[in-house]
């Protein structure tokens, strides 16, 4: 196990749980969306850490591909959520 595994693996786990806590406890809808993105980043960091094989070895390309897919899915979901929030506030302003 490499030092980088320790450092980034631990950070990934921590960032994910930070994000989870904020998703559960934050009041603002927008900040919950951001928290979900941060949480996802934590998971992605774990994946990239798994793929890392040291400075001289080629990393495992599969987790990289998974993270790329995950990033695109996350941005799609974020965009939909932001539009929903905007629509909801407009609707409430009309009420």
């Amino acid at each position: 196990m490499l030092t980088a595994h320790w450092l980034y693996g631990l950070s990934g786990c921590l960032i994910m749980t930070f994000g989870l806590r904020a998703v559960l406890l934050n009041d603002s809808l927008l900040q919950r969306i951001i928290a979900l993105n941060v949480m996802g980043t934590g998971v992605f960091m774990i994946l990239i850490t798994i793929a890392y094989r040291g400075p001289d070895a080629a990393p495992d390309p599969i987790p990289h591909a998974l993270v790329l897919t995950g990033i695109v899915v996350a941005v799609s979901a974020t965009a939909l959520a932001l539009t929903l929030i905007r629509r909801l506030t407009e609707e409430q302003d009309n009420d």
Binding site: M16, V23, L36, M39, V43, I46, A81
Partner: peptide, 20 residues
């Protein structure tokens, strides 16, 4: 819209835990 937004957040949280 309120219900859909909560549904979305719960769904995204669920998928993220699944991915973890």
């Amino acid at each position: 819209l309120q219900a859909a937004l909560r549904y979305l957040l719960v769904g995204l949280l669920g998928s993220m835990l699944f991915l973890a």
